[in-house]
Amino acid sequence: MPSLKTLRNRIASVKATQKITKAMQMVAAAKLRKAQMAAEAARPYAERMNTVLANLAKGLEGQPDAPVLLAGNGRDQVHLLLVATAERGLCGAFNSSIARLARDHANRLLAEGKTVKILCIGRKGADQLKRQFADKIIDIIDLKALKTIGFGDADAIGKRVIAMFAKGEYDVCTLFYSRFKSVISQIPTAQRIVPAEVQGTAVSTGGIYEYEPDEATILSDLLPRNVSVQIFRALLENGASEQGARMSAMDSATRNAGEMIKKLTTVYNRSRQAMITKELIEIISGAEAL
């Protein structure tokens, strides 16, 4: 049986922890609202981009002169994994679930005899992948200094990814991030961005489209931009997911702390009672002996 003093100390420290987790939960809730708004505001652009790409890609499908960013360079040997995670921990399984998805993907590729390169966006994913793939990680992009992610930041990453592709440093690029479904559900997702995976179906516009300059020129202008847009969208979704995950993780931490305090208080009260009873017995038996 621990002494009353240690019990009191433990209760006090659990209470202090509970205060911190509660504060973190509220901060995460406020940030989540902002992040969610940013993610929703970015959707129209990404959707339009997809529709336009789908329209253009349909026209060029199967043609030999299709841009390499769309059709690929014909090889499938070197894979670049772009792993986007958070900069901070304490957000439940958020970081590890993205890292796990990336790790499984990398292991599968390695088993097939492919070469894997990893580019990490965010420290936390890098920390987890470092254990197994320390020699595969080519760089870690740190976004810690940024309060909000602007398109410029995503564009810089996108330009870098495309420059690497142009130099032939990889053949296929896959982006890993967590899609925000709701506060309690974030889905780790893998998306191929080079060559572009055209989602959505082409919409028939009824009339004949005129292209200015020609389709190929527009497409070659659009495809690099699309890579940046996809990265931007992934980063925003990730931001919202991170805050959501942190919110629910901190919520259950607060609840756990509450339960623990309740249990400890019961133990404390019981042992206090036992102590009093013991002292009384001692006094009474002492008096009787006289």
Binding site: I208, E210, E212
Partner: peptide
């Protein structure tokens, strides 16, 4: 301001896609 020159869009303009 299109890449190949400025153009004005009015209602019922024929479908065009330009950078």
């Amino acid at each position: 301001p299109g890449t190949d020159g400025d153009f004005t869009v009015l209602a019922g303009h024929s479908p065009v896609m330009t950078t």
